[in-house]
């Protein structure tokens, strides 16, 4: 299987403090990887650096996406090439209607890939299909982006975008936090529907429950800015039972 994402010995600092200390991770096409690890171990930092958020200084290592140097690309170029981050904390954007945002974003990605813009009827049809399957009411799409959305609604809106943009790498940063039991099931079904041989997922979570729905091929444990152990899906159950104590010592 071809590698889609290769993170090699990545070192990242924020405000002169090193957060990732030589992290290595390879995700092959079609695989689902879970990343678990204690608070502050650097999971969101890794997801932000992959998406291209400013403010992080990469002091060593590299990230390849489909063999290309991801760190050389602007965030929007990464999005157009198929990198998608479902944020742990999606922002509210007052004054920007959700539909307008979705359409502008989708067309910007298509334009960057040299594809035609989607016509209004085609676009509306796709949004209706996707929002329908995720149980997102049309009324929500008329509001400003995430404005006045509950925590769970914001997360569902992230999954909606993922389904609409059809990225090849989906990074889900604690998609399960804030979701009620039904919403978790519906959102997970949405994610599972996107599983495909040419699409990979990195699922960051604290809870085994999500991995009952989105069953991973590989589970990684992150501690103190490194991957300290990788294994199959049974590793998540072990963590649930024993916690992180042994890894925190190992990384120290």
């Amino acid at each position: 299987m071809a590698a889609l994402l290769e993170v090699k010995d990545l070192q990242v600092s924020v405000a002169d403090r090193e957060i990732l200390h030589g992290l290595t991770l390879t995700v092959n096409e079609g695989e689902v990887h879970a990343i678990m690890g204690p608070n502050g171990s650097g999971k969101s930092t890794l997801s932000h650096v992959i998406a291209g958020k400013p403010g992080y200084e990469v002091t060593g290592g590299q990230i390849l996406f489909k063999g290309e140097d991801l760190l050389e690309m602007e965030p929007n170029e990464r999005a157009a090439k198929g990198v998608f981050l479902a944020f742990q904390y999606p922002v509210e954007i007052p004054g920007v209607a959700t539909m307008n945002f979705l359409r502008t974003a989708l067309n910007a990605q298509r334009k960057a890939r040299g594809e035609d813009e989607l016509s209004t009827p085609d676009f509306l049809k796709r949004v209706r299909e996707v929002s329908g399957s995720l149980g997102i009411p049309q009324e929500m799409l008329k509001r400003g982006v995430n404005v006045g959305f509950s925590g769970g609604e914001k997360k569902r809106n992230e999954v909606l975008q993922m389904a609409l943009f059809q990225p090849s790498l989906c990074i889900l940063d604690e998609m399960d936090s804030g979701l009620d039991i039904d919403a978790l099931r519906i959102a997970s079904e949405g994610v599972n529907a996107l599983r495909a041989p040419n699409r990979s997922m990195v699922v960051i979570t604290h809870y085994q429950r999500l991995l009952d729905y989105i069953v991973p091929d590989v589970v990684h444990v992150m501690s103190k800015g490194k991957v300290v152990r990788s294994g199959g899906k049974e590793l998540a159950l072990e963590l649930e039972a024993n916690g992180y104590a042994q890894y925190q010592e190992a990384a120290a």
């Binding site: 291209g52 602007e74 965030p75 929007n76 990464r78 999005a79 007052p94 502008t104 974003a105 910007a108």
Partner: peptide
């Protein structure tokens, strides 16, 4: 950053926020 992570080039992302 949110807008850019969704594919909008810098100036377009700025334009969207300014227009809002």
């Amino acid at each position: 950053f949110y807008l850019r992570a969704r594919g909008l080039p810098q100036k377009e992302a700025e334009a969207m926020l300014i227009q809002a």
